[in-house]
């Protein structure tokens, strides 16, 4: 079967391999690296990772599905994860969520039809002192207000 993951993926994994006493320990890094390339983790990619590590594809799936950061469904170009845990809730994160729902016309967990935005609720991001906070793809945005959020979103291409 033709490989779906890039040479760079295998190069990165090759660099990490000597750092662990077992190859299975590469699973989380491999899933991260693969998701960086493909945006999400379709079954074929997870199958390829399983083959690379030498484990059953079901083992890849059980691990991947345990962690919320691995996207087992496609996500939009911009993946908004708004923290609604205690500290952010106390500082008005629900308003942000409602605002986004209205703005994009989608519910939590959904992606806009143009595949541009995916809206999710996130558990505590560890930015409670600068709440409310959200992740936009890999980046944190803190001390958010509805106006501030709009400014960020409107600046996205």
């Amino acid at each position: 079967m033709a490989k779906l993951l890039s040479e760079n993926f295998y190069k990165e994994m090759g660099k990490l391999e000597p750092r662990y006493p077992s190859k299975v320990a590469l699973l989380l890094p491999a899933l991260h690296e693969a998701q960086k390339e493909t945006g999400w983790l379709p079954p074929e990619i997870m199958e390829e990772i399983g083959t690379y590590i030498g484990i059953h594809p079901a083992q890849v799936r059980e691990v991947a599905s345990f962690y919320t950061m691995y996207n087992l469904k496609p996500v939009g170009k911009y993946h908004l994860k708004i923290c609604t845990n205690v500290a952010c809730c106390l500082r008005g994160s629900e308003e942000l969520v409602d605002h986004c729902k209205k703005k994009f016309g989608i519910e939590l967990g959904e992606t806009t039809p143009d595949k541009k935005f995916t809206l999710m609720e996130e558990e505590c991001l560890g930015a409670c002192g600068t709440a409310p906070a959200m992740m936009l793809n890999d980046d944190y945005h803190e001390n958010l207000t509805v106006q501030g959020l709009d400014k960020i979103l409107d600046g996205l291409k």
Partner: peptide, 10 residues
């Protein structure tokens, strides 16, 4: 000896 039956989600 096969990891085919698994727990998914959590």
């Amino acid at each position: 000896g096969i990891h085919e039956m698994v727990a998914v989600q959590r």
